[in-house]
Simulated assay, not measured.
Amino acid sequence: MSDNVENLVLEHLRRLNSRFDKFELEQMDIKMRLTAVDEHLSGIMMSVAGINNRLDRLEERTGRIERRLDLTDAH
């Protein structure tokens, strides 16, 4: 009977080990996908920063043009 119990315990341990292996693979996949999302988000943020910089420069240039042409509001 002790052989049966040992075999049963070993079988359960093997099943648990198999489940943990699958879990580890899924976790690694999720980490890789999150890293890719993070990299894409960083790229988007850099693009937005570049656009903001260009808009700031455009605003400065427009302000200078308005002052030269005396188009500023009297308020």
Rank of each mutant, 00 (worst) to 15 (best):
M28N: 11
M32H: 02
V37G: 00
A49D: 14
L41I: 10
R61G: 15
D29W: 01
I30F: 00
R54K: 14
I65D: 04
D29K: 04
R67A: 06
L71N: 09
L55W: 01
E60W: 13
E66V: 04
I51G: 07
I30K: 02
R68K: 06
A49N: 15
M32A: 03
V48W: 03
M45Y: 10
A74N: 08
T35S: 05
T35W: 00
V37Y: 00
V48E: 06
M32N: 04
N52E: 12
L55I: 02
L69F: 02
G63K: 10
R54S: 14
M46C: 03
R68A: 03
M28W: 08
R54H: 13
R57P: 08
G43F: 01
S42A: 09
D56C: 11
D29S: 05
R57H: 09
E60K: 14
R54Q: 13
I51P: 08
R61D: 15
V37I: 04
G43T: 01
M45R: 13
G50A: 11
M46V: 01
S47D: 14
D38F: 07
I30A: 03
L69G: 00
R64K: 12
D70I: 05
E60V: 14
T35L: 06
H40F: 07
G50F: 09
G50W: 09
E60N: 13
G43W: 05
M32T: 01
I30Y: 01
